[in-house]
């Protein structure tokens, strides 16, 4: 409850600072905010778009959140997300029957994410390499590898600016508007993470390892295994974020500048911080992020340049992420003092 109030206060503060920025540049902040929410929630179609936009963010948010629960600072979601997307897309080169094709794509993408997370875990457990360093480096390897595949191997010969489109046998069926059944993949994994962390012994091990690794070790909890599990689960989740972006959202392809995958991985960090690194909080954080993104254009119609919109939204996001970020820093300090 306290956490909720804190986040809410941070939201109000962020909105006020954002309003001050807009007012300073002679724009009316309240009609602008009204436009933002109208653009995101104004009708069924808008709401579907917003939810659809949020779904991959749930998954990258989970990656960071489960890492934090294990005492990690895992920022590898970006690279794992890119690989998941490109592997899922490449599965489109096979021809398989409807449904099965989608399943195979998800399995392969998930495997790619797990394989990409494995070196992070091994380096940490056997060589003591900080996961921060190894994930940053692997993110770049994944970025250039994905870019190479997208531009050189998978591009649509008639359309230089993107890859071929995923065959219909591999797409998530549409629920309504932009929303597809990738909803189940995303929400399902979030619920699974919740159940696993709070209602399963191995999940308890992860949380215990994160709270106090020494105490956990002393009471016989295999901390190494918990860390390994948290990283691999995170890899799976992030890769699925990329996969559902390609298999479950228009234009069912990857653009040549990777812009339709954007910063889904890094945004997941902010989503997790807003959601207090709790799987259910992550759902709310992702929905909030989707709201900001989907409502931005309508805000633009109010005469606010895109750069200012991004500044205002950045202020709100940072402000909301601050309480949890501080908590993590305090936690780390306490751990180091011991």
């Amino acid at each position: 409850m306290r956490a909720f109030l804190e986040t809410f206060a941070a939201l109000v503060l962020g909105i006020l600072i954002g309003a001050a920025i807009m007012a300073l540049w002679g724009r009316d902040p309240w009609t602008s905010y009204a436009a933002l929410f109208q653009g995101a929630w104004g009708n069924t179609r808008a709401l579907m778009s917003t939810v659809s936009r949020s779904l991959p963010l749930v998954l990258t948010g989970l990656t960071f959140a489960v890492g934090v629960r294990a005492g990690l600072f895992n920022i590898g979601a970006q690279g794992q997300m890119l690989l998941g997307a490109v592997v899922a897309l490449s599965t489109g080169l096979l021809s398989l029957p409807m449904g099965l094709h989608l399943l195979v794509a998800l399995v392969l993408a998930g495997l790619a994410g797990i394989i990409w997370a494995l070196p992070v875990a091994l380096l940490k457990l056997f060589r003591g390499v900080s996961e921060v360093i190894s994930t940053i480096m692997l993110n770049w390897v994944a970025h250039w590898l994905t870019l190479f595949l997208v531009v050189r191997k998978l591009s649509d010969p008639m359309r230089g600016e993107r890859t071929f489109q995923v065959p219909t046998t591999m797409r998530f069926p549409v629920i309504q508007g932009e929303l597809t059944w990738s909803l189940v993949a995303s929400l399902g994994l979030a619920l699974f993470f919740y159940w696993f962390l709070w209602h399963h012994a191995k999940g308890f091990e992860i949380r215990a390892a994160g709270l106090n690794p020494k105490a956990a070790k002393a009471s016989g909890i295999p901390v190494s295994r918990a860390i390994l599990l948290a990283l691999l689960l995170g890899g799976l989740s992030a890769a699925w974020a990329g996969a559902i972006q390609v298999l479950g959202r228009f234009p069912y392809a990857i653009t040549s500048d990777l812009a339709n995958l954007g910063n889904l991985g890094f945004d997941g960090i902010a989503v997790a911080l807003i959601g207090r690194n709790h799987p259910l909080g992550v759902l709310a954080g992702a929905f909030f992020f989707g709201t900001l993104a989907t409502g931005a254009a309508r805000m633009g119609l109010r005469g606010i340049p895109i750069d200012m919109i991004q500044i205002v939204q950045g202020v709100i996001v940072v402000s909301m992420a601050v309480p949890e970020a501080f908590r993590l820093i305090r936690l780390r300090r306490k751990r180091e003092e011991k």
């Binding site: 653009g39 917003t50 339709n260 993104a293 309508r298 633009g300």
Partner: peptide
């Protein structure tokens, strides 16, 4: 005359739908 800019390619379709409807 009014104008607006996409915040990313992820919003193209939802933005255009918002404008059209």
């Amino acid at each position: 005359l009014v104008y607006t800019t996409a915040s990313s390619p992820m919003e193209f379709l939802s933005d255009l739908s918002m404008l059209a409807e």
